[in-house]
Nucleic acid binder design. Sequence first.
DNA 1: ATTAGGG
DNA 2: CCCTAAT
Length: 626
Amino acid sequence: MGTVVGTADDCREMFEGNVQTRITPFSSANQIGNPVTYKLVRVAGDGRLVPATDEEILEVNETDVHITTDACQTLGYLPTEGLSSRLSQLESSEAISSGLLQSDNVEPYTEQVNSRLECFNEEMLQKVEQEERLVMIDGSQVPSTPPEANIYCSNANKLFDEDQVHHEALLQEPFLVSSNVQNGCDMNQSNTVEPCSNAAASPKETALPAAAQKPDFSLVRGEICLDNLSIKALQETFRATFGRETTVKDKTWLKRRITMGLVNSCDVPITNLTIKDNKLLGNQEKSNDVSEDMGDLKDAPSGNDHMNGNSKACGHSLSVNNHYCATEDFSCEERAAKRVRKPTRRYIEELSETGERQQNDKSMVPSKDQSPSEKSEVRSISVSSGKRVTVTRMVSLAGSEIEVPYVSHVRRSRPRENIMALMECHSSCLEARASAGESNRNLSPSLSQLTSEVVNRSSVVKPSGPVHKEFATSHNSNNEEEHILSEVDQDMEPEHMDSSGNSSDDNSNTGAPIMQGVVGLRRKHHRAWTLSEVTKLVEGVSKYGAGKWSEIKKLSFSSHSYRTSVDLKDKWRNLLKASFAQSPSNSMGSFKKHGSMNIPMQILLRVRELAEKQSLVPPMSKVVSR
DNA sequence: ATTAGGG
DNA sequence: CCCTAAT
């Protein structure tokens, strides 16, 4: 609930902040066809739509979305998820909005209608899809939408039939209007928004506080409509809606399910929204079949509203839900979220990066084609194809607006903190650059910030400025360069060894030769191991035993902050390999001809020695060492 | 948080 | 070196 309130506030902000209320050209409605999903969004003072949270993802129809429209949708649509209950919650906001709208222009009505239409369209699309699915599944004739449903639809249409003739055509498709939608529409019924505000407002106040005593709003037409249906009919409807049979006999359940299904079908991932709501309740119904789970998940997000608003209507089933939710509300949410985010991994992220960009590109095209959306501040593209949703937002920069990919605050570069700032900076910069360039050369504030941040960091470490060494030469073969550097290091190292201990030295001297800024996109930082390092490593191993990498790192590599225990481990592994590989044929002498570093025989021998020792007496060595 | 291993 | 899984 609290969340809801917050939403309302946001809405208010939107309205207030948004000076220019724009009316969506009707044309947009015509073009509809893209499912639109709105999530918690707020409008910045300048009118930009901004995700309520950084992580918030806003899926919006790419076509022009107007703030007003958005507001409408936010108000009307969001609630939709939760059904009537939601509506009640939003009432206040609606009232506000309505008031504003009224004062503003008469147009709001139109806008609302549009928004609504969009909703309908979405639903219709969904419906159609479902139908198709059904066909595929059954092969038999598609269960036509229950007559009632159609009737219902027709009613809904009547609301704004005059304006949208074309829409009707679309609506002709079997199409169930969810109660929510209805509610949302109610506002529109009267030309003036007033009625809606009034009607809505009153219920809400009562409803919100005490769920127990709620007005009849719970009995939405949709509900009623469904009510009239027999169980069988409901099942049919269910089937039509979800594309699968259901054995559930519970009328209430069916109704709810259908309603919610219709509602939810509009928006796919709602996780964000849910998360914000502490109260988001999961829908826990025991599903009869597996697929049911999916539905539940979907429902989960909106569950909250449901509870609040529909408790009355749904009766017992709801009460059960409430209970469940009360205890596990959040977990439910999480569950859903997890499901959605499952594939999340940094690795995957990177991979998907490309996809995102592509998507962006795509989005660009349609935007032009679809309709000139001059003003849409935010245009986010929902990609139905992929699970990932890319969000972009327009940022006015230097007078011109540019589309910028919305970047999550999560840092992309490697997690390690020590890492030579330089390298990180490099990689980050490169990344930033790359992404910026790839994404239509847009400068994203977030990106820039990131970059600057990185830069600052680097500057702290190395005030002198951005890497110089690295830029020196950028051959295609980094290895060579690195190799050379390593050699240099080797030469220098010995000297440092004695005085080793000051990290600054390491940073500047041991300096990371790495990313050759210009050419390679290679983001791997590589720092060749110096002889001294190897020596230390071996020493450490002999002292503390292999496997005590953290110890070794602490005691023997205090000065080399960039070597992590993992690095040590890896290096040791390599050394072992090398030592054993070389032992058979000592002919090579003290130097390996390979590209790898020259490792003195001595060391290799020592390594082998240690290795054998440890392998033979693993436990002892560890204990003994100290 | 470390360590062991695979890539 | 990087990334993960298992401790």
